[in-house]
């Protein structure tokens, strides 16, 4: 088992596991074949709300998102649709 970091932002913060410090992310255990899609389902994140997914800061396209396999030390961030300026 190896570990990576999951960060949930904005309205997705309500899906944070109990006791995790808010926007600083939490550890998530993965196997060699854990995909982003698996993680989304495991954490019960609402797919219709997820808009921006950054894997180590790089945007994951919606098409390839589910199949992307996670690696040790990765950081995965989720956002609903947001914008500012």
């Amino acid at each position: 088992m190896s570990k990576m970091t999951v960060k949930l932002f904005a309205s997705l913060m309500e899906y944070l596991p109990v006791n995790s410090t808010k926007s600083h992310g939490f550890d998530y255990k993965i196997t060699d074949s854990t995909t982003v899609g698996y993680l989304i389902d495991d954490l019960k994140l609402p797919r219709n709300v997820i808009h921006i997914v950054l894997l180590n800061g790089v945007y994951l396209d919606a098409e390839t998102r589910d199949e992307t396999v996670l690696s040790e030390g990765d950081t995965l961030g989720f956002w609903p649709p947001v914008a500012g300026g």
Binding site: K7, S11, T75, W79, V82
Partner: peptide, 25 residues
């Protein structure tokens, strides 16, 4: 009905960007 103007901006304001822009470097 737009998620940004109907939800994101009212709830978190423009400051919602801080983490996004930071995470993407």
């Amino acid at each position: 009905e737009n998620a940004v103007t109907g939800e994101g901006l009212p709830a978190l304001g423009t400051q919602v960007l801080m983490n996004v822009i930071n995470e993407m470097g």
